Simulated assay, not measured.
Amino acid sequence: MSIFSDNLRYLRVKHNLTQQKVADALKISRERYAKYEATTDPPLDCLQKISRFYFVSIDLLLSFDIRRVPYEDLLQLEENRILLPITVDSNGENRIEIIPEKARAGYLAGYSDPEFIEALQHISLPFLRNGKYRAFPVSGDSMPPHKEGSFVVGEYIERLRDVVDGKTYIIVTKTNGIAYKRLVRKGKNLFVAKSDNTVYEPYEVKASEVLEIWRYACSIATKEFEQDDLGVMSVKDLLQGIREDFSALRTEFGQRKR
């Protein structure tokens, strides 16, 4: 038996359905459906119908034994109607998974794997509700005052159109992996990812490259902020002071010239 046929039988029994009822929903004969629970693989159009009928992604149906993760705990998205490995507890409260630095490289391969997500450590924060949150490690010094070793907690967003220009996001892409950046929209299907540390050049991100996007919710610092740390706001204040001084000098020079 294949993983797919096992999943198909499990889902049918889980929902207390007969083979005939599922076949009727798929608009095929019961005999044809029975073969899918045995050894025959369905054609693509029928596979899509099965995926939509059970609200389970085709990838999960074909590649993962969904009996290994509590089926009811997977979060259902509204628009594309698939189940992702984003879990909540028995009370419906968020389980905030923590992506440790050592798991950072494997996240691209494991972000859609329920077993990978289930194995992560998790925390709960009582002030973060009504959303799905995940904690990602900060790498480098491109987004001060967040230091390397700290964590940024992001809220999962389903639609790229919900991205607000100038706000910060954890963005997971096929080419750059996990990055925490300030995003600015550039056209319909393109974003510019900017670092608050201006030493780093901004770069473009195609919408087609985006795997996940998480809106900044809060951060967890693991190192004490030091007085010598020059944060972004300090830089802005310094530049503003320079502008004001320059403006005052220019005004004074103009008055003297008169």
Score class of each variant (00 low, 15 high):
residue 191 F to M: 12
residue 251 T to S: 10
residue 126 P to G: 06
residue 204 E to P: 02
residue 93 E to L: 04
residue 1 M to D: 10
residue 135 A to G: 02
residue 16 N to C: 09
residue 192 V to D: 07
residue 43 P to L: 04
residue 128 L to A: 06
residue 207 A to N: 01
residue 246 F to I: 11
residue 141 D to C: 13
residue 115 E to H: 01
residue 22 V to D: 03
residue 73 D to Y: 09
residue 220 I to R: 02
residue 188 K to E: 14
residue 236 K to Y: 12
residue 178 I to C: 15
residue 106 G to R: 11
residue 152 V to I: 08
residue 211 L to S: 14
residue 207 A to S: 10
residue 67 R to V: 03
residue 98 I to H: 07
residue 230 L to W: 05
residue 159 R to T: 11
residue 38 A to P: 01
residue 107 Y to V: 05
residue 191 F to N: 10
residue 74 L to R: 05
residue 175 T to P: 03
residue 58 I to W: 11
residue 173 T to I: 08
residue 238 L to I: 06
residue 211 L to P: 12
residue 16 N to H: 13
residue 224 E to A: 15
residue 33 Y to I: 00
residue 200 Y to A: 07
residue 218 C to I: 07
residue 194 K to A: 04
residue 18 T to N: 06
residue 47 L to I: 00
residue 66 I to L: 01
residue 212 E to C: 00
residue 59 D to E: 12
residue 131 G to F: 04
residue 10 Y to V: 00
residue 90 S to A: 15
residue 237 D to E: 14
residue 109 A to S: 13
residue 24 D to V: 11
residue 125 L to E: 06
residue 80 N to T: 14
residue 98 I to G: 03
residue 207 A to L: 02
residue 155 E to A: 01
residue 123 I to V: 09
residue 176 N to C: 05
residue 207 A to V: 02
residue 158 E to R: 07
residue 103 A to I: 06
residue 4 F to T: 01
residue 37 E to G: 02
residue 67 R to I: 01
residue 133 Y to K: 13
residue 220 I to H: 03
residue 240 Q to K: 10
residue 20 Q to L: 15
residue 91 N to F: 13
residue 216 Y to T: 01
residue 147 K to L: 09
residue 88 V to I: 13
residue 55 F to H: 15
residue 69 V to P: 01
